[in-house]
Structure formats: structure tokens, C-alpha cells
Amino acid sequence: MTDSNEWPELRALYGTAALPGVDTCDFFHVHIDERGTSVTFAFETSQLPANPKPERTEPAYNTLRFWVEFTGVSGLRVSGILAEAKRVVRIGDGGRPGRLDVSVTSETRSIAFSASASQVTHTRVYLKGSL
């Protein structure tokens, strides 16, 4: 299983603490770049890093967002486009060396593809209000 432990960008933020697994994070964004054969997912977690980047002048924050870019994408399949609250995110090697099998599924929608690599391209801590 490929998970957040394999992204050194997150390891630098969390130090020796356990990293949030993508299955415990809120999945809130997908961007498909057909020109570069990449797909970017964005996740949000309340599991705060020990060493966040100093991007805010205010000391208060309660949420980390991070963006993961998958490159060398092939076999992209998309069904439906609206967001749903309950989703299952899976990132695994699928038994093929050098490839990741990626999927996000819900009751009525899904996206799935194979990728050659993944990396965290951006992180941001911020103060998320409650509704």
C-alpha cells in the first residue's frame, strides 16, 4: 500500500509523529490535467504537523491541506462529477512494479487511474471555522 508515509514533503512537516493516512483525511479537490497526463488530489486533515511551514502570521491554525500530484497517468476513468460526503480513497501498487493504482469511489461516483509517481506539491495550514 502506498500511503502518506511515502511522501517526504509530509514527513518533513510531521517529523517523527505519525502521518495522517489519506483514508482519514477529507478529500476535497481533483484536477485533471490532460496536457501533462497528471491528476492532482487535495486532502484536508485536523491532524496537525509538528513543523508547519511559516506561511501564516497568526499563530492559530487547526487544519492542514495538502495537494498530491500523480504523474504519468494512464487508464483514467471518471464517472460522475458532484462531490459526496462519503468516499473511499485507495492508493496502492496493484502488484505492478513502478505503477500506482489510484481510486476514489462513493455510492454513485468514481475516479480511477494508474500513475507512475506521486508527490506532495503544496501544503497549507489555516484556521478552519466551524459551521
Score class of each variant (00 low, 15 high):
E58T: 07
R87P: 02
G98F: 10
T40S: 14
G94E: 03
G75T: 14
R35K: 13
A117Y: 06
R99D: 08
E69R: 15
P52N: 14
A50M: 12
H122Y: 14
T123Y: 08
E34G: 09
V73G: 08
V102I: 11
A50Q: 15
S116I: 02
G15W: 05
D3N: 09
I32N: 09
N5Q: 11
F66I: 01
E6P: 00
G36Q: 09
A112C: 05
D33F: 09
V120F: 04
K128F: 08
P52I: 12
E69N: 12
T71E: 09
S118F: 05
C25S: 08
R109N: 12
S79L: 07
A42G: 05
T123I: 09
S106G: 15
L10C: 05
E44M: 13
R109T: 11
H122G: 00
P20S: 08
T37R: 12
C25Y: 06
A18G: 04
R11H: 04
G94H: 04
E6R: 05
A60P: 01
L127N: 07
G94I: 02
V30L: 10
R99L: 15
I81C: 05
G129N: 13
P20L: 06
P54W: 15
S79I: 06
K53H: 06
N51P: 01
G15L: 05
F28E: 00
Y14A: 00
V88M: 11
E69C: 13
T123N: 10
N51Y: 14
R96S: 10
G92H: 12
W7Y: 15
S116R: 11
N51I: 04
E107V: 07
L82D: 10
S74N: 10
G75S: 15
E6I: 01
V102S: 02
T24P: 01
Y126S: 07
V125H: 06
E69Y: 05
L127Y: 11
A17Y: 10
I32G: 04
G94T: 03
T57Y: 08
S4P: 00
E69L: 11
K128M: 14
V30A: 10
W67T: 00
E34K: 13
P49I: 03
I32K: 08
V89S: 13
K86N: 14
S74D: 14
F28W: 12
G80Q: 13
V30W: 07
E44I: 04
F43G: 02
I91K: 03
R65T: 11
R65I: 09
T16N: 11
M1R: 08
F27M: 02
S38F: 04
K53D: 11
Y126D: 03
E6C: 03
G15N: 04
R124W: 07
A83F: 14
E107I: 04
